[in-house]
Nucleic acid binder design. Structure first.
Lengths: 193, 193, 193, 193
DNA sequence: AATGAATGAGATTTCATTCAT
DNA sequence: TATGAATGAAATCTCATTCAT
């Protein structure tokens, strides 16, 4: 293993250890000493790779670009099967990193600023879902008794709830499958009868 | 105002200040000094009322006995309207204390042990919902294409998701109303056609 | 019981409680709250009777005026029986208050200043003992192979050692008896053969 | 000076400073800040070497293994000269660390538990001295008018008294010499005439 | 005279970060 | 580049003392 590879490996070991500990104990309650011990390096080494402890958290929170959902509205319907396929794929991908997901939720709620930022992220998604449901209503796919805005909102909630549920280990299904079944019921509920 | 009342008032001022700050900044990042300053008392006074900083968090986390949901299974169907009425009432009650709800979620995710405890709480609720959905299936209220277990799981998710959604301020509706509409779509999705 | 008596009783209860606790835990580790609780009064009451916590300690340390030893040298010999009678009486008197004696030793060693003061006290006693032993040597009561100064010094030591021994509960004898037997051996050792 | 040596030196500087200050002011009245300032290190450094302030006290109280006294009874008499040689050696050795000795006495008296432990230590020594004096009585070295138990008790007292005397600076002799002369008088007092 | 809530200085302890080796 | 001893700001918590009731 050459020098470059060794460096990368060290960095990853630190990242991984940090993630585990943050998930277990929370960010504030985890000390740099714990991280470096878990990673099997000296305390000083931590600061060779990251400027601050906060820095590591930042590196971990790069979450889930949901570009594809944003692009959904530009595609033709029916949307239900497309959407279901999408969340299944997305869920399966995210399931690979349970700790990261937990961290991301914790981070979201950690303080007012983070919450505000996350909220904006979800509002953006909602804004991009509204035209999807509107189009679905126009093409007769979805009922018109519920406003598209409400549908988008509920969809977001289902995503959040399933995430929380899965992260906490309440359901035993995989994250993708759990999302799938939840959204199936959801679509059943809003389909035009 | 007599002495006893003054004492209670002081305690409440501290509790309130603590709740606000915990909600804003998170538990770990909030210092006792900040709390007492916000409450307008001396640092020492905090420790006249609470043994430790952790103690105050405990006092805040007494949340929401959901006995009524537990008792639902012992009542006759149809369950959908009963359940909807229940979550509306529950939601409206809980909406009175936004900060407390946020704290409770943060607390749930703060560390592995808390998460485990919360998980058990939700599993208990799920276990009590399963017979409700089973009964509903037997009486022809709900579809039989989805297992009762899954329904209970999704119901829990919807609750969690709506809570998260509302706490983060994504939806503008009241908590009770938001729960109501979400569960309406859910029941629409599982009704026997 | 009239007012005056009640006041005195309260003061004594505080003093007694303080003494017990100081003896058990040491002065610094005992809190005013502990004292007042043990005395069955409110914290504020303590400061109605004593200016500071230190003040109480002072009140307790008034120990054992050893005037009589000081006066011994002005009396005629033989000194051994006189001395033995004296230490027996003294010891029996002091034995009445075990806690006080412990406190007094602790106080002696608590810091450099106290130690210096106590040292001066003991030196004073030694200075007053030296002429006694000198006289005893002149009258042929004591050996002349050991300087009177040394005798005085050893006598002081025996007193200190017996006190420590008794306070710690190593010997089961009464304090007076223990002093008596120790000094008997001592005089046996310095008698003119 | 290499790293390892520097570390040791730092630890010793802290220990030494702590010992001096404890001796001067007592344990409770000495702050960690004072110790570190006296040792010329930062406050945090203290806690790199000792878990708590109490920890340091413990490190200082490792006193005086008196194994040799314990073994005395297995040797043949006459015991007086053996014993005298022993206490002289012991005293000279202990004299090297005045502060430590003071600390040890303070520690003994600091609270009930310590006192109990110390008492047991001294009782052990006494128990090991009793057979020595008994043997001495059988071989005609010591008088039989005083029980061996009493002799052992008085010997312990002489040790304690001399220690206190020397620690307080009452006598000007060295500790070993002071012990020697005191025990000479003692043996003179119990020798078979 | 008695109370005990309030005070705040000051104690112990933690821990992210620096830097000489 | 890796190390870990040293740092010191800042946290939690204690407790003697005050004072309005």
């Amino acid at each position: 293993m050459n020098r470059e590879e060794k460096k990368l490996e060290t960095k990853n070991r630190i990242l991984e250890a940090a993630m585990c500990l943050f998930a277990e104990q929370g960010f504030e309650s985890t000390t740099v000493a714990q991280i470096t011990e878990a990673a099997g390096v000296a305390k000083g080494t931590f600061f060779n790779y990251f400027k601050t402890k906060e820095d590591v958290r930042g590196k971990l929170n790069k979450l889930v670009a949901i570009d594809e959902i944003v692009n959904l509205k530009d595609k033709p319907g029916p949307y239900a099967p497309r959407f279901l396929a999408l969340v299944k794929t997305l869920g399966d991908a995210m399931a690979e990193n349970h700790g990261m997901l937990l961290l991301s939720i914790q981070g979201m709620l950690a303080n007012n600023q983070n919450m505000e930022e996350s909220k904006e992220g979800f509002c953006l998604i909602m804004d991009n879902l509204i035209p999807v449901f509107e189009k679905g209503q126009q093409t007769g796919e979805f009922t018109t008794t519920i406003p598209a805005t409400t549908m988008a909102c509920i969809a977001t909630q289902i995503y959040l709830g399933t995430m929380l549920n899965w992260v906490m280990g309440i359901s035993k299904e995989g994250f993708g499958d759990q999302l799938l079944i939840s959204f199936q019921v959801f679509f059943e509920g809003i389909l035009k009868k």
